[in-house]
Design a protein around this nucleic acid. Structure first.
Lengths: 193, 193
DNA sequence: CAGGTAAACTAACATTTGTTAGTATATTTA
DNA sequence: TAAATATACTAACAAATGTTAGTTTACCTG
């Protein structure tokens, strides 16, 4: 199969691109930089990908697709709203730990997407946020949550979970599970005694 | 005074640069883009600033200096640790609302600083984080706060406050004060009932 | 009004950018 | 083994980049 071998190098290019984009930003990463990291001339990469923009698109939509499908799954579980929200928080933390580079790129460099891709990504994100906010509102209506502004709660949660990308290293004296429980406790129960 | 007139245009350039950097990123903003926004040829701006890098430096350190001096002030007030932490959260939200473009740049584009400026900025940020974390630890030791991992609490707070830059618009049906109280309540008391 | 300085302009520079063309070398298929 | 395909390379392109040089215009000071 022609596509099979192609996929190997293609995947490598995408992974190294995510790392470099995270470290230096999309604009700060040249195709020659990326080629050096992959072990290939910049021009050679065009046998595997169509453009620099396409690399960014693939990374961003891979992440947004994951979030959206996971949200749909969680919505259909038969648990309390608190549990659903906990599951979403865990999802964010886990994705950040497992695929931190790509998540960072989707969080920070999505704005360099162009035209319809940019619009599609913004729409996808908006849909995800809407679904998440709905869970919070339903949780409030069901009496499980404090009657806060759902948008404020939503964005506080989404942001609170982002710093993991900047901070977490496997050997930092805290496991992924501990981290999850710490953050969930903090967000659901608060810092004050 | 020669410097006086110079400062006017210089300030305008810095302000427009912050807006553009926030919108398109440092790498995504050319000096010609900036010139167009300011109403001047790119080359003309070099009568007021020394380089594109310098613009970024000024924006970033203006913000980090503000945080550091405010932290020092808050540390010396005679209040509880909870109140000190609340004051810091309010500071972050207020700065974001009042000078959102510059704060965004300091948050997102600092990595494009070069050499010693980059190191100095990272050091300044680390010092600020250390001071903030110390307040949390002392608050825990004093029995005012839950015994959580101070780093986790610190970064959760710092991040939770960032989304304001992406979301807050003066006419969004919520005042700056309401926003502050919502976020503080959420972080200190939690979302769950 | 004269002289000097500040601040704008145009033109051009050297690099760096993403990308393409053309070509050579592996690797797979028949 | 022969033909075909995939994949790498070198060289080069056009465009965009930050910046400098040189010049002209506006403005303040004496």
């Amino acid at each position: 199969m022609a596509k099979k071998t192609k996929s190997n190098k293609r995947q490598l290019i995408l992974e190294e691109a995510a790392k470099l984009f995270k470290a230096r930003g999309f604009g700060g990463t040249s195709m020659r930089d990326l080629g050096a990291q992959v072990g290939m001339e910049a021009a050679s990469m065009y046998n595997h990908i169509n453009s620099k923009d396409e690399i960014l698109e693939i990374i961003c939509f891979q992440i947004s697709d994951t979030y959206i499908s996971q949200l749909a799954e969680i919505e259909q579980t038969a648990t309390s709203y608190v549990e659903k929200i906990k599951a979403l928080i865990r999802l964010h933390i886990r994705l950040m730990i497992e695929d931190g580079a790509a998540v960072s790129v989707a969080n920070n460099d999505w704005k360099y997407l162009t035209n319809d891709k940019l619009e599609a990504f913004k729409q996808a994100r908006k849909n995800y946020e809407k679904g998440f906010a709905a869970l919070i509102e339903q949780g409030i209506a069901a009496g499980e949550l404090q009657p806060v502004n759902a948008s404020v709660a939503l964005f506080t949660i989404l942001s609170a979970v982002r710093w993991v990308e900047l901070w977490y290293r496997p050997g930092r004296g805290i496991t992924a599970e501990e981290l999850e429980e710490n953050i969930i406790t903090l967000l659901l129960n608060g810092l004050a005694k």
